[in-house]
Design a protein around this nucleic acid. Structure first.
Lengths: 242, 242
DNA sequence: AAGTGGTCTAGACCACACC
DNA sequence: GTGTGGTCTAGACCACTTA
């Protein structure tokens, strides 16, 4: 048997494009699973798995016995983004200029909080990085990052000015696969006031996150801070609850 | 063949309990899929599907070629909760007393925003509800809810004082299956100051959400507001990205 | 009654980790 | 090389909707 191998991810990608291109318009019934299976020359099981991705991302929903439908699309402001799909600021704004001003860059031993988050011993050194991220030249976000030196080798200033994630992916050939995120509102601290232009009454939104590689190893512990009016966080929630 | 039908959801539930009971301790390798398949008398495919749920919820992670491992558990404050699993305040705090003070309860015609969110025509009436939710007698959260009258029949004051979700589930026999949520920080408004005890410099956290039934029909559009120090939102993000 | 998605099976081959 | 998870197949039966 020839290996067609347009795997379920690729099929999901194709169907997603059809939704975006309005080939499958909002609220419309899309072709049934058997027809899609025939079109893509795969089994119905593979189609179901592809659709599962789009269902969990909120693009489709099903009614057993009736069919699969396109979800009514939500209009988002440009700055809003899907928390479950976040892979760095450079990726969030591909059409804008993202730059960074390095406020701190050093190598230190991790405190207990960081040891616990990154699963490290006290004697394993970590990068300690504070960056001000700018969007089209405007101060946008403060980012405090800790990464284990032994995992993220060879980090230097030039990389920090661009995208750390790009370096990890393209140069180190590492793939991130999961993240744990905590989102909360807070009062601005002195640093927020200085760099983000917050006044005493301007709330900030913080995201504390631990990001892991495909082997489950945590490589980033970070806290990012935005002024309250700089975008929202979108979360899609779908059944399969247990 | 006898129908064992401990479906993948039930198996996921059992394995989740084992993790919680430390039968499968943190960072440990759990039995391989073939062994689990044998134990539960199901095919390996069904086990894989069960594990997928726990992986997407962040309890497990896999390393191809090596095995399936228990994720390092994150210690959470009691008030923090998983956004992707939110099914109402009464469910979030099963061991506490959740009560409500009804601030507004009326039936109105929806404005454009609500029409759009709930997929309604201008002449379809909606409940317009504002509740102050109390946790163990303490003011905890403000909730502004709109629900279509034709879907959520027979709502009355007594229900509002307890749990609307319970009424929808148990009395109306409707099942919710998906939600779209937008999380953002904000300055407190007059109502927040009055009911949540916010001062001018106390940020609030708002969650705007649209919740749908299993047939994809939206039945709730709501905005909930908490004082910034009343808990955080946890989001787990896992591959299968497309 | 007919049609659609939901679930499950038994088996297969592949990619990757570990020895 | 051996063992593990990742993916896929072809087919089956069930649950639910629609008519």
């Amino acid at each position: 048997m020839k290996t067609q191998n347009r795997s379920y991810r690729e099929i999901a990608e194709v169907i997603k494009k059809r939704i975006e291109n309005n080939e499958y318009p909002t609220n419309a019934l899309i072709p049934k699973q058997v027809d899609l299976a025939e079109e893509f020359s795969v089994s119905r099981t593979t189609i179901a798995k592809a659709l599962d991705i789009l269902i969990s991302r909120g693009f489709l929903y099903t009614r057993r016995g009736a069919g699969t439908f396109v979800t009514k699309s939500m209009v988002l402001s440009k700055q809003d983004f899907y928390v479950q799909d976040y892979i760095g600021l450079t990726n969030q704004f591909p059409d804008d200029t993202v730059t960074s001003k390095i406020i701190l860059f050093e190598i230190v031993f991790p405190d207990e909080k960081v040891q616990s988050a990154l699963n490290l011993k006290a004697e394993a050194p970590v990068y300690n990085i504070i960056r001000l991220r700018l969007l089209n030249g405007q101060n946008y976000m403060l980012e405090h990052t800790r990464m284990p030196v032994h995992l993220i080798k060879g980090l230097h200033l030039e990389i920090l000015q661009k995208s750390i994630y790009k370096y990890i992916k393209e140069t180190l050939q590492l793939t991130m696969s999961s993240a744990w995120r905590k989102i909360f509102a807070d009062k601005p601290n002195e640093q927020d006031k200085k760099y983000l232009g917050c006044t005493e009454t301007d709330p900030v939104m913080r995201v504390e996150q631990i990001v892991c590689l495909t082997d489950g190893e945590p490589f980033e512990y970070s806290i990012t801070t935005r002024k309250y009016d700089q975008g929202s966080f979108i979360v899609i929630d779908q059944k399969s609850r247990c």
